Amino acid sequence: MADTLTPLSPLHSWNHTFSHLPESVRITEEPFATMIDLWVNPTGPGASAAAAVLGVDLPTTASTATTGDTATAIWLGPDEFLITTHTQAPETLEETLRKAVTPHGGAAIDVSGQRTTLRLTGAHARDILAKGCSIDLHPTVFRPGTAVQTMLGLAGVVLTALDDTGTDYRILVRASFARYLAAWLIDAAEEFGVDPV
């Protein structure tokens, strides 16, 4: 019988630790998302071809994201986007996007192994982020559809707002910084009543 490898997320052993956080600060890992770096002119035919594959238009404004039924497109630069989804395998989406955009001078590369995703929710979620992030997180400014590359503590992240009350965020962090960031978030949450582990 052949041995099989079971994929493990960077934070696979942290669920117990996360469970000791209060309701006002909840952290959960959303592992194994498909992530594709997409390079394409957002105003050219390549963007239309990508949108047809993804079911969502690419954002054309800095620090924004567009979300469809199955995928999210995050603006990383004038011609660079990060596509995330849980509904398609990385190799399938990479190949489909590459075929769609290459004739228009675009490119698509699977970067799914680069990052993991944390979901930060609760009444004190914005308070936690404000301890280590220099951007204005007020819900009137940082609202759904906003996505920025920023520093959180000492980790570079992609931060997106998921609601307009400052209580729901998605944090994409490099796998090599995931444990650091998880520990940082838990430390930042201590004043709100972390239960002993």
Score class of each variant (00 low, 15 high):
6 T>V: 14
61 T>N: 12
91 E>H: 14
160 T>P: 01
48 S>L: 12
165 T>I: 12
79 D>A: 13
142 F>L: 05
130 A>V: 03
122 G>N: 09
38 L>G: 04
135 I>G: 02
73 A>K: 03
157 V>Q: 05
59 P>G: 11
170 R>N: 03
37 D>I: 00
137 L>F: 04
42 P>V: 02
108 A>K: 02
197 V>I: 03
110 D>W: 05
107 A>K: 01
64 T>D: 09
106 G>K: 01
25 V>E: 01
137 L>Y: 08
119 R>Y: 00
147 A>E: 06
154 L>I: 11
59 P>L: 06
7 P>Y: 06
110 D>G: 04
146 T>Y: 06
69 D>M: 09
70 T>G: 01
158 V>L: 15
26 R>P: 05
78 P>F: 03
107 A>M: 05
134 S>Y: 07
177 F>N: 10
29 E>Q: 13
40 V>G: 05
157 V>P: 09
10 P>F: 07
11 L>Q: 07
173 V>H: 02
115 R>I: 00
38 L>I: 01
189 A>I: 09
37 D>Q: 09
5 L>M: 08
114 Q>R: 14
64 T>I: 02
48 S>R: 11
184 W>Y: 15
59 P>H: 10
80 E>S: 14
184 W>F: 10
62 A>I: 00
2 A>L: 11
187 D>Q: 13
71 A>F: 03
103 P>C: 05
106 G>Q: 04
143 R>W: 03
127 D>C: 02
30 E>A: 13
180 Y>T: 12
86 H>A: 14
32 F>H: 08
84 T>P: 03
77 G>C: 04
38 L>M: 10
53 V>E: 13
42 P>K: 04
32 F>R: 01
108 A>C: 08
60 T>V: 14
27 I>D: 06
122 G>I: 10
137 L>I: 08
12 H>K: 01
69 D>W: 05
136 D>M: 06
51 A>V: 00
